[in-house]
Computed example of a mutant assay.
Amino acid sequence: MAVIMCGGEPGAFDLVRTLGKAGIRSTVFSSRSDDIAFRSKYARRPKLILPEFRAENYGEIFQRIAAFSQTCEERPVLLYAGDSELMFVSMFREKLEPFYRFLLPPGEILESLMSKVAFIQFAQKMNLPVPPARGFASVSELQAANQTIDLPCIVKPAYNQDWFWQSEALKRRFGTYKQALRRFDSRPALLEFCKEIPETRSGFVVQSYIDGPDNSIACFHGYFDEHSVCLGSFLTREIRTNPPCTGDLACCETFHDGDLAGLSIEYLQRIRFQGVVKIDYKWDEAAREHKVLEIEPHYQAWHLLGAYAGVNLAAIAYRHQKGERVEPQTEYSDNTQLLYLSNDLKAYWHGYRKNREWTCGSYLKSLAKKKHFRIFDSADPMPFV
């Protein structure tokens, strides 16, 4: 049995469909009682409603999902669809292992990937090609070093969930986590922004901003066994994001680049990675290389695109963790597209239309191309209704 754990939609539905395409039905644990994944024909009953994935709720979440596992004939395979869910699994790793099957990298490596502050030193130690970045514990530290910051730059939280705002005032001021990410071309503007962001114990990162259009953002997706052998992989690139340049998935496609795929596997084997992974890259024209922006060790919406193209990482992970023999899968089709229509329309209207990166004609022409939809699937229509 597969169990998908997600704090909110549509992340759970991405994985329900991805596994469903391989003939694997799954049980959904969600923090939303109206999660569209519950309506999928690939979702098993019963559904399990969890509290929000916040640290103060982790104990209760563990009790609920441990109790569910004890009703199963065998340990289910656990798939986690976001940063907060990954944090929970990491913190309760030893307690969860008697109840669920999952594969994570060693603890010290996992922490270095989850924390953007820790990742700076880790990337330098492992000789990964990353943009220049500095971690700060507080605004006062940044203020003391402000004149030495290279521009343009971007500010990121140590953990993504640090910018999952709890108050309505912060949500109105900064928007979503992705909307809060922005380019800074002046040091006073950088400092003013950081003063307004609530301070956290984990700090924040100021990273050099790499210029370039959205299609210069590429991602490697893979699954690695306990010996860091890659059992499946594919590459994607962004066509549009919401908001432009720093946002979430709006429209993306698969592509091939043997050199980038090979380097990605080499980087991950260098750090002794195991489990599911996504590496975010951006092409640095000045350096003439892809720079690593982030390494994310959890399941992703892009896995649905991979399944359509020919490499189903969620199914590979499920079968491997069940102890089945899995032959490496790296053959997939080029230019297979995935569209998150509501996000894409917002990205065009509020962003690309204004910066003229996409004209009305070029945008409509791009929509006319054959593609798969993140939410709508004629074979499983109820979540869309």
Score class of each variant (00 low, 15 high):
Gly203Asn: 08
Ile154Thr: 01
Gly107Ser: 15
Tyr177Val: 07
Ile279Ser: 00
Gln70Lys: 15
Ile295Pro: 09
Ile197Val: 09
Ile217Asp: 08
Thr176Leu: 01
Asp83Thr: 12
His350Asn: 09
Pro328Ile: 08
Ser186Thr: 09
Gly212Met: 10
Phe99Lys: 05
Ala261Val: 13
Gly20Ala: 05
Thr236Ser: 15
Phe220Asp: 01
Arg182Val: 03
Arg44Thr: 04
Pro129Gln: 13
Asn215Trp: 15
Asp248Ile: 10
Ala317Pro: 06
Glu168Leu: 02
Pro243Arg: 02
Asp257Tyr: 03
Ala314Lys: 04
Ile24Pro: 00
Asp35Trp: 07
Ala2Gly: 09
Val89Ile: 06
Glu331Pro: 01
Arg54Met: 04
His372Pro: 04
Ala261Ser: 14
Gly59Val: 08
Tyr281Trp: 06
Gln161Leu: 09
Phe53Gln: 05
Thr359Asp: 02
Asp34Ile: 10
Lys116Asn: 10
Pro152Cys: 12
Gln274Arg: 13
Gln179Tyr: 04
His320Arg: 01
Arg54Cys: 07
Val276Phe: 08
Tyr267Cys: 08
Lys278Asn: 12
Tyr348Pro: 01
Cys153Phe: 01
Glu73Ile: 03
Ser84Phe: 03
Arg356Ala: 04
Ile109Glu: 09
Pro297Met: 04
Tyr100Val: 04
Pro105Gly: 06
Glu331His: 13
Val276Arg: 05
His221Ala: 12
Thr200Trp: 08
Phe29Val: 04
His303Gln: 15
Pro129Phe: 01
Ser264Phe: 01
Tyr363Thr: 06
Ser264Arg: 00
Leu249Asp: 02
Asp334Pro: 09
Cys252Thr: 11
Thr359Ser: 15
His372Cys: 12
Glu141Thr: 10
Lys171Met: 09
Met5Tyr: 05
Val206Ile: 12
Gly7Asn: 08
Leu293Pro: 02
Tyr223His: 06
Leu345Gln: 04
Lys346Asp: 04
Leu304Cys: 03
Asp34Met: 02
Pro381Cys: 11
Arg54Gly: 01
Ser216Gln: 12
Ala314Leu: 14
Arg182Ala: 10
His372Met: 08
Cys360Gly: 11
Phe122Trp: 09
Trp302His: 12
Leu339Arg: 09
Thr336Gly: 13
Asn127Glu: 13
Phe99Thr: 02
Phe384Glu: 09
Gln166Asp: 07
Ala133Gly: 06
Lys371Ile: 11
Pro10Asp: 05
Phe273Arg: 00
Gly212Asp: 11
Ile109Phe: 03
Thr246Ala: 13
Phe174Lys: 00
Phe122His: 05
Phe164Ile: 07
Ile279His: 00
Ile154His: 00
Val155His: 00
Leu170Lys: 03
Val89Glu: 10
Thr241Val: 15
Pro106Cys: 13
Phe174Cys: 03
Lys282His: 06
Leu181Met: 07
Phe273Asn: 03
